[in-house]
């Protein structure tokens, strides 16, 4: 099997689906001739032409609004928002229009599209190129939210997202765009949505994370193992609708939970996960669930490695929760 990084795997999925389905079109800023700011769409313009790989002006509301219209007319658009931080001019389109089409048409129409966008910190982008806004979309009923952590999942989840009947926000953790490498099968396969993955089995404690922080969680879990603590690490893969069953099964076994995410702590997905654990398996808990997250501040330029919940911050949380 070929080795790929995340960028190559996502590119492979896009190419495969565009060959397979001529209704699939890509649109966004610099996605065509330039091949995208992170080169994720490189080569697609040459293969599929300007009618299917469409360079747009800087116009996020227009890009998403137009993509919604294309989807209502039977196309399968895959708009790219250059950075997740730039998605907010399109927030009205996503929240007021995209998320509600199925509902407002009594279940008959859906605006089926996948919005791809790089998210998260790790490249010293400061406050407009580093944010993780996933919970702001999870809170909007009608959207699915996906975030892969490795090339295999990236390709399989993207293909599943494109073929899923609902609109999907596909967040790509840019910190590991090229750093995360692995074997990716040639040809077609999917990774089902809403299925989390236990990436490290353990019996003492459950660590739940997603995106680039999964590698930090694994690092911390490996360090904790040296202290005799066996942490189970769950990669959510699909953030919403969440695979709560895998989480509950793990927590019933371990009784202890640490949730790790880059986004600010307050009203982050971590809080929702812990609330669900409380509702579903409170009596199995042996320690208060803990969140290790970004701070409730804008994303800083210089203090990036302080802000991100890296292994050195996760490890003490694991040790303290295990000892509680």
């Amino acid at each position: 099997m070929p080795q790929m990084n995340m960028v190559q795997a996502i590119n492979d999925a896009l190419r495969l689906e565009m060959r397979r389905n001529d209704k699939v079109v890509i649109l966004g800023e610099d996605v065509g001739k330039v091949g995208g700011v992170f080169r994720v769409t490189a080569g697609l313009y040459d293969e599929f032409g300007e009618d299917r790989v469409i360079d747009t002006p800087l116009s996020e509301g227009g890009i998403i609004g137009a993509a919604i219209g294309m989807a209502l007319y039977g196309l399968v658009p895959i708009p790219e928002i250059q950075f997740a931080d730039f998605i907010f001019p399109a927030y009205d389109q996503i929240v007021s229009e995209l998320a509600k089409f199925r509902y407002r048409s009594g279940g008959e129409y859906v605006s089926k599209l996948v919005i791809r966008t790089p998210m998260g910190g790790g490249i010293r982008g400061g406050h407009y190129h580093s944010q993780s806004p996933e919970s702001q979309f999870i809170h909007v009923a009608g959207l699915k939210v996906v975030c892969p952590t490795n090339p295999y999942d990236a390709k399989g989840l993207l293909l599943a997202s494109i073929r899923d009947p609902d609109p999907v926000l596909f967040f790509e953790p840019k910190r590991i765009y090229r750093a995360a490498k692995g074997e990716v099968p040639e040809g077609d396969y999917t990774v089902p949505l809403s299925q989390a993955s236990v990436v490290r089995p353990g019996k003492h404690l459950t660590v739940i994370s997603w995106g680039a922080m999964i590698y930090e969680a694994l690092d911390a879990a490996n360090q904790a193992a040296a202290k005799g603590i066996e942490a189970e690490v769950i990669d959510l893969r699909t953030l919403w609708p969440i695979d709560i069953d895998t989480i509950v099964e793990s927590v019933k076994k371990t009784g202890r939970v640490v949730v790790v995410h880059e986004a600010p702590k307050s009203c982050g997905l971590g809080g929702e996960i812990i609330a669900m654990i409380n509702e579903k398996c409170f009596t199995h808990l042996e320690a208060p669930p803990v969140r290790v997250t970004g701070f409730d501040t804008p994303f800083p330029y210089t203090l990036e490695l302080e802000y991100l919940p890296l292994a050195h911050r996760i490890l003490p949380a694991i040790v303290e929760t295990a000892a509680y």
Partner: peptide, 25 residues
Amino acid sequence: KGLGGSMHLFDVPRGMLGGYGIVGG
């Protein structure tokens, strides 16, 4: 104070109301 970096220079007393990283924002 080093928290903004290249795109976010700001100085109220000098009337420099910022560099902004969101195009057109």
